[in-house]
Every structure is written in C-alpha cells, then in structure tokens.
Amino acid sequence: MLDATVPRETILAGHLAEIRARRPHAEPQLVAEVVRAVLTTMSDTLTAPDTALLREVEALGQTIANAKAEIAALKVDDITGSHIPFATDELDAIVAHTAAATDAILESCEMLDAVGATLTGEPAEKLQDATTRIYEACSFQDITGQRITKIVGALKTIEEKVARIVATFGPKLIDLPPPQSAQPTPEDDLLNGPQLPSQAMDQSDIDKLMASFD
C-alpha cells in the first residue's frame, strides 16, 4: 500500500537508491527489477502504452539475463582453448599432407617426362598429354590451400567474437585486450582468394572483360 502523503517520485527514488546500493554494477537482471519497481510505484498514473513499453523493457532485461546464463553454460573455454585450435591444427595438417602428396605426384610426373623425352612419335605425344593433365590437376593444391586458409581465418574470427561475447555478457569479466585489426591496405578489398564456383568468373568471363578494355 502506497502512502498517499509521500510523493511518488520520492518513493521511486528510494526504490532506485536501494537497488543501486544492493547491485552497484548495472546488469540485465537489474533492469527488469527496476522496471518492476517503476510499474509498482506508478501503476495508477501510467498510460497503457507506457505500461506496455515498460513491460517490453522488463522482458528484454529478462531475455538478456537468460542469455547470460546460457552463455555461462557454454563452456566457452572449451571452444577457445580446445575445439577451435584443434580444428585449425587439423586443417593445417590437411594442407601439409596434400602438399606432400602433390610434390610426390609432381616428382613422379617429372620422371615420366624424362622417360618421354627418350621416346618419339605417338607414344611420346600420349605421354606428354598425360603428364600435362597431371600438372594441371595438381594445381588443386594451391586452390584448396587458399580455401583452407580462409576457413582458418574465419574460425579465428569466431574464436575472438565468442571470447568478446563472454567478456561482455558472461558471469566473469575476462580481461581481453581490444580487438587487433590488421592495418588495412589499399589492396585489402582485392585479396579475397578463390571464390565459390557459383560466384566466380571463369576464364571466358575474364577474357570478355579484358577484351572490353581494348
């Protein structure tokens, strides 16, 4: 029951001071609590839109508080300390293994070329055609290496963002340095690596574009 002799503003200020004393650091749960206090204190003078708005703010505070609890349950240390480093190490190993295999294929192909140089006529031509196809196919290694490098970069970005979310909303504040973004260069927008086949221009598209300058 409200004491009619005490102004509502005074009662509200009292509530707020009490909450502030209990929880000096603003947290989402506190927002919901404050809104509830406002609604209780001023329920007789608030308009319907005011009440609806304050209910929304209360719900928002509760949603953020729930998200905090869920983030706390994520075991983020496992993600940043184990899962992502494991994934990037595995990807690095894929690049190393395929590079070694490609080098072995190229070495064998060069030996075949040396044999082909001792032949003449159709056998020599057929052997050269075959080794040419092998050399062409081996360039897959460069493309897959570049794609994997892009994935490793994306994983590292995710790792950094997860750590930042935890630092912002998690139960314990983690002392993270500010994000280190590399100094942009004028060419940054042009260094994207291989495009997905559905988005990439093929050689004939590039030939047309080049010809359009002539």
Partner: peptide
C-alpha cells in the same frame, strides 16, 4: 585465384597484359 571483376579491372588499369584465373 582472385576472380572478381574489380580484380581484373584493377590489374588492367595497372597495365597487365593478360589475366589467367586458377585453376588453369
């Protein structure tokens, strides 16, 4: 492997003689 239009345009403007996209 850079196959975006802006790459080809930038290379052409810089004076490239021709442009091959990987894999080739």
């Amino acid at each position: 492997a850079e196959s975006k239009t802006e790459n080809v345009v930038a290379a052409k403007q810089a004076g490239v003689s021709n442009y091959i996209v990987k894999p080739f």
